[in-house]
Amino acid sequence: MSAAPAVIEARGLSKRFVKRLDLAGKIAARLGSGQVEETVHAVDSVDLAIAKGEVVGLVGESGCGKSTLGRMIAGLLPATEGQVLFKGQDRATLDGRSALAARLAVQMIFQDPYASLNPRARVEAIVGEAPLVHGLTTAGDLPAYVDAMLARVGLAPEFKRRYPHQFSGGQRSRIGIARALAVKPEFLVCDEAIAALDVSIQAQVINLFMDLRRDFDLTYLFISHDLGVVQHIADRIIIMYLGRIVEMAPTVALIEQGPNHPYAQALLAEVPRLGREKRKFAPIKGEIPSPLDPPPGCHFHPRCPHATERCRIEAPALREIAPGRLSACHLNDIR
């Protein structure tokens, strides 16, 4: 990519969730019911490097593995295979002080704020505890520190005595954002971080993210289903399909030259716009493949209008098709 050293790098990163049979299932299997252990191939050999100060957008269908990839990169979920490097060092081999430093430097804003906030802690503790423990503020300055963090995400200081259940959905998700920013991270995984906010507050949070990047070189992996927002803030966009990266390109190139991969083309064709017409929505055609049973070859072949015999057998590699642009599609071999 660029010459700047990577803050975060993923090498051959995979995650499989194996569901063991429960007792009833085991008995049934013994009796020949054909029940087997289920394996979800959530993330399949992902290679990715993110440079300091870069904003990388990650998009793809619901269930394609975005959150799983984000959680592995944030060091919150062990990988089945592969490594995550933080500033060139394998996170799994860090210990003591350097492990703690990496843990603080890489923060995640969760897709589901409710489950990620301690229901029995007041907001002042949720946002203020970690910065106090790690010496980013003093006990005397803590109230002002917390107020400032809340104000940045548009929450009034009066909210800090409340518990998470006493907030609206969008207010709760902003508490999650304030908590992550309060420890002054270097790298932020934002998993649908602004999905629950109205557009004006979305704009405020996006502006805040861009300011932090300008002032502190904060680096982002920005997971979102909202292509409009991703196109607005990301330098580079990654498109995932069923656990694999299918295309990676600078945002400007993706918009100006159009996507290369057939799935990316289908996805970007559907960016919704503020239409003024009531319209009839159409159902999805054909069956959506599942990561429980990914199709062989190119994962996209059952839905791809260009699929050939080779696509059904051989998985296409993610290869450079132009400087800085990668795509995983056999069509690129034919030209």
Partner: peptide
């Protein structure tokens, strides 16, 4: 329906909106 499709991509969202209609 309270923010039922906040985290859904456009294709799947269209499917849900179709069902609602």
């Amino acid at each position: 329906a309270d923010e039922p499709t906040t985290a859904l991509d456009v294709t799947i969202q269209a499917q849900i909106l179709h069902e609602a209609q």
